[in-house]
Lab assay of single mutants.
Amino acid sequence: SEEELIEKAEKLRKEFEFIWNGIRFIIRENADEIRRFEELLKE
């Protein structure tokens, strides 16, 4: 039914948001290391 689809979509959206926030947190935490690594690659 349509309601089930909406519920599934909402659940997926929440899971995606949770994963995305996790990725963003990891990137933020490691931003300095990532930048340093990029500098090494440029040399």
Rank of each mutant, 00 (worst) to 15 (best):
1 S>N: 10
1 S>D: 11
1 S>T: 03
1 S>G: 07
1 S>I: 13
1 S>M: 12
1 S>E: 10
1 S>C: 14
1 S>F: 06
2 E>G: 11
2 E>C: 15
2 E>P: 05
2 E>N: 07
2 E>K: 12
2 E>D: 07
2 E>W: 14
2 E>Y: 11
2 E>F: 11
2 E>V: 11
3 E>N: 11
3 E>T: 06
3 E>C: 14
3 E>H: 12
3 E>P: 03
3 E>Y: 04
3 E>Q: 06
3 E>I: 09
3 E>G: 09
3 E>L: 09
3 E>M: 10
4 E>L: 06
4 E>R: 08
4 E>P: 08
5 L>R: 04
5 L>G: 04
5 L>Q: 07
5 L>A: 07
5 L>Y: 07
5 L>W: 13
5 L>S: 06
5 L>I: 06
5 L>D: 05
5 L>E: 05
6 I>P: 08
6 I>H: 12
6 I>Y: 08
6 I>E: 08
6 I>Q: 03
6 I>D: 06
6 I>W: 10
6 I>V: 03
6 I>F: 08
6 I>R: 10
6 I>K: 07
6 I>A: 05
6 I>M: 07
7 E>R: 10
7 E>C: 13
7 E>F: 01
7 E>L: 06
7 E>V: 09
7 E>N: 13
7 E>T: 11
7 E>H: 06
7 E>D: 10
7 E>M: 03
7 E>I: 11
8 K>P: 10
8 K>Q: 10
8 K>H: 11
8 K>D: 09
8 K>M: 10
8 K>A: 10
8 K>L: 14
8 K>T: 07
8 K>Y: 05
8 K>E: 05
9 A>G: 03
9 A>N: 09
9 A>K: 11
9 A>I: 12
9 A>P: 04
9 A>M: 13
9 A>Y: 10
10 E>I: 09
10 E>N: 05
10 E>T: 02
10 E>Y: 00
10 E>V: 03
11 K>N: 07
11 K>A: 06
11 K>H: 05
11 K>V: 01
11 K>M: 04
11 K>E: 07
11 K>T: 09
12 L>N: 08
12 L>Y: 02
12 L>I: 11
12 L>T: 04
12 L>D: 06
12 L>W: 12
12 L>V: 10
12 L>E: 03
12 L>R: 04
12 L>F: 02
13 R>K: 09
13 R>D: 03
13 R>E: 08
13 R>Q: 12
13 R>L: 13
13 R>T: 05
13 R>Y: 13
13 R>H: 11
13 R>P: 10
13 R>G: 08
14 K>V: 12
14 K>H: 08
14 K>Q: 10
14 K>D: 07
14 K>Y: 11
14 K>E: 05
14 K>N: 10
14 K>S: 09
14 K>I: 12
14 K>W: 14
14 K>M: 06
14 K>P: 10
14 K>R: 07
14 K>G: 02
14 K>C: 13
15 E>A: 15
15 E>M: 15
15 E>H: 13
15 E>I: 15
15 E>F: 15
15 E>G: 08
15 E>L: 15
15 E>V: 15
15 E>K: 11
15 E>S: 11
16 F>Y: 02
16 F>M: 07
16 F>R: 00
16 F>A: 01
16 F>W: 12
16 F>G: 01
16 F>L: 07
16 F>P: 00
16 F>V: 06
17 E>S: 03
17 E>Q: 05
17 E>T: 02
17 E>N: 01
17 E>F: 02
17 E>D: 02
17 E>C: 14
17 E>I: 10
17 E>G: 04
17 E>P: 00
18 F>V: 08
18 F>L: 07
18 F>Q: 01
18 F>G: 02
18 F>R: 03
18 F>D: 02
18 F>C: 13
18 F>I: 04
18 F>T: 01
18 F>H: 03
19 I>Y: 05
19 I>E: 01
19 I>D: 00
19 I>V: 03
19 I>T: 00
19 I>L: 03
19 I>K: 00
19 I>S: 00
19 I>Q: 00
20 W>N: 00
20 W>I: 11
20 W>M: 07
20 W>E: 00
20 W>K: 00
20 W>S: 00
20 W>Q: 00
20 W>F: 04
20 W>G: 00
20 W>R: 00
20 W>T: 00
21 N>H: 09
21 N>T: 07
21 N>Q: 10
21 N>W: 13
21 N>Y: 13
21 N>G: 04
21 N>V: 14
21 N>E: 09
21 N>P: 03
21 N>S: 12
21 N>A: 11
21 N>C: 13
21 N>L: 14
22 G>V: 15
22 G>R: 11
22 G>I: 15
22 G>C: 15
22 G>M: 15
22 G>Y: 15
22 G>L: 15
22 G>D: 11
22 G>P: 00
22 G>A: 15
22 G>W: 15
23 I>N: 02
23 I>H: 03
23 I>W: 02
23 I>S: 00
23 I>R: 00
23 I>E: 03
23 I>T: 00
24 R>Y: 04
24 R>I: 14
24 R>S: 11
24 R>A: 08
24 R>D: 14
24 R>W: 13
24 R>T: 09
24 R>H: 05
24 R>C: 15
24 R>M: 08
25 F>K: 14
25 F>Y: 02
25 F>S: 13
25 F>Q: 14
25 F>P: 07
25 F>L: 13
25 F>T: 14
25 F>M: 14
26 I>M: 01
26 I>V: 03
26 I>A: 00
26 I>W: 11
26 I>Q: 01
26 I>H: 01
26 I>G: 00
26 I>N: 00
27 I>Y: 02
27 I>N: 02
27 I>V: 03
27 I>K: 01
27 I>D: 06
27 I>G: 02
27 I>L: 02
27 I>F: 04
27 I>C: 15
27 I>H: 00
28 R>M: 12
28 R>H: 11
28 R>N: 11
28 R>W: 14
28 R>F: 13
28 R>E: 12
28 R>I: 12
28 R>K: 09
28 R>Y: 12
28 R>D: 13
29 E>H: 06
29 E>D: 05
29 E>N: 03
29 E>W: 14
29 E>A: 14
29 E>K: 08
30 N>Y: 15
30 N>L: 15
30 N>G: 13
30 N>K: 06
30 N>A: 15
30 N>D: 04
30 N>V: 15
30 N>T: 13
30 N>R: 09
30 N>P: 05
31 A>D: 08
31 A>F: 10
31 A>I: 13
31 A>V: 06
31 A>C: 15
31 A>H: 05
31 A>Q: 02
31 A>W: 13
31 A>L: 12
31 A>G: 03
32 D>H: 08
32 D>R: 11
32 D>G: 09
32 D>K: 06
32 D>M: 05
32 D>T: 08
32 D>F: 10
33 E>N: 11
33 E>V: 14
33 E>T: 12
33 E>Y: 13
33 E>I: 15
33 E>G: 07
33 E>P: 09
33 E>C: 15
33 E>M: 15
33 E>D: 04
33 E>F: 15
33 E>R: 11
33 E>W: 14
34 I>H: 01
34 I>E: 05
34 I>L: 09
34 I>G: 04
34 I>Y: 06
34 I>A: 03
34 I>W: 10
34 I>P: 01
35 R>C: 14
35 R>M: 07
35 R>F: 08
35 R>N: 08
35 R>D: 08
35 R>W: 10
35 R>E: 04
35 R>V: 09
35 R>I: 08
35 R>P: 03
35 R>Y: 07
36 R>A: 06
36 R>N: 03
36 R>D: 04
36 R>Q: 05
36 R>S: 06
36 R>G: 05
37 F>G: 02
37 F>M: 06
37 F>R: 00
37 F>N: 01
37 F>W: 07
37 F>S: 01
37 F>T: 03
37 F>K: 00
37 F>Q: 01
37 F>C: 14
38 E>R: 09
38 E>K: 07
38 E>H: 12
38 E>D: 04
38 E>S: 10
39 E>V: 04
39 E>C: 13
39 E>Y: 02
39 E>I: 12
39 E>P: 01
39 E>S: 02
39 E>Q: 05
39 E>W: 04
39 E>R: 03
39 E>T: 03
39 E>A: 05
40 L>F: 09
40 L>E: 02
40 L>C: 14
40 L>K: 03
40 L>D: 01
40 L>A: 02
40 L>R: 02
40 L>Q: 04
40 L>T: 02
40 L>S: 02
41 L>A: 02
41 L>E: 04
41 L>C: 14
41 L>P: 00
41 L>V: 05
41 L>R: 01
41 L>Q: 01
41 L>S: 01
41 L>G: 01
41 L>K: 01
41 L>F: 10
41 L>I: 09
41 L>H: 01
42 K>S: 09
42 K>A: 11
42 K>P: 03
42 K>M: 10
42 K>F: 12
42 K>L: 10
42 K>G: 07
42 K>I: 09
43 E>N: 12
43 E>P: 07
43 E>V: 12
43 E>T: 07
43 E>R: 07
43 E>F: 10
43 E>S: 06
43 E>L: 08
43 E>H: 08
43 E>Y: 10
43 E>A: 12
43 E>I: 12
